[in-house]
Amino acid sequence: MSQQTTFLDRHHFLLRRLHSLSGIVPIGLFLIAHLTTNSSILWGKLGLRGEHPEFSWSQGGAAYFAKEVVWINEQVPHLFLIELTLWLSIGFHAVLGTIYALTGRMNTSAYPYGANKRYRLQRASGYIGILFIFYHVATLRWGWTFLIPGGTAWSHNFASSTLAAALRGGEEFTAMGMVVSAFYFIGVSLLVFHFANGLWTAAITWGLTVSRAAQQRWGYVCAGLGAGLMAMAWASVIGFAMHSPAAAREVETKMHPDAAAMPQTP
């Protein structure tokens, strides 16, 4: 080798494989869990298993989601360490992913094959995805409320109502709220694609799928998983954007009567 080698070159294989792995665990695994919890705004009544029979379908969703969020915050040990691991993994994957993506030269117009389009979308979804995740975590978790139209601070004691208000830009839909909701819809859809397609390529990277037939079969599995996650992702965004914050707050107050006295900020 003629030139001096860089850190990336010296640990080339390890970093590449860690990048692949980090997309699956922890990030991908978190995504599955996160979308399952978030979509409960639509199916939460089932999750209550007969508790609060007086709740309507929509109240049940808000109640179950609130319960889940409180459970995570109160019961999961070392939550902050888990969060830190997640943030660092996303940062690691995003930085390397950007570096790797910059080595490519898109040529889908000359070679418009399906896999080539997915290759391109994998990179585009990564770029837009990190913008979404940054906005998402900064506003909801780090309290950068100046980036939320209406300035709602997300609170885990008022999980459903504050989330609905953050998406709507206030109690009712505002123009900026629609922009936020649309951004959520696009960001979440792209990230679900990125994960499902990433699972497909990762199987080639690691050598699990070798033959064309195996790659095709695994492709169907990934598409199926992607479709399921996409349904949950859309259910989450639509479910919260369509939920009235006032109605959700009523449920949250009923669930724990002392909630009204609790701080509105996390």
């Binding site: 590449r16 494989r17 040529n107």
Partner: peptide, 10 residues
């Protein structure tokens, strides 16, 4: 090497 392949399959 192999890891620089992005699986575009062109």
């Amino acid at each position: 090497g192999i890891n620089d392949c992005g699986n575009a399959q062109n």
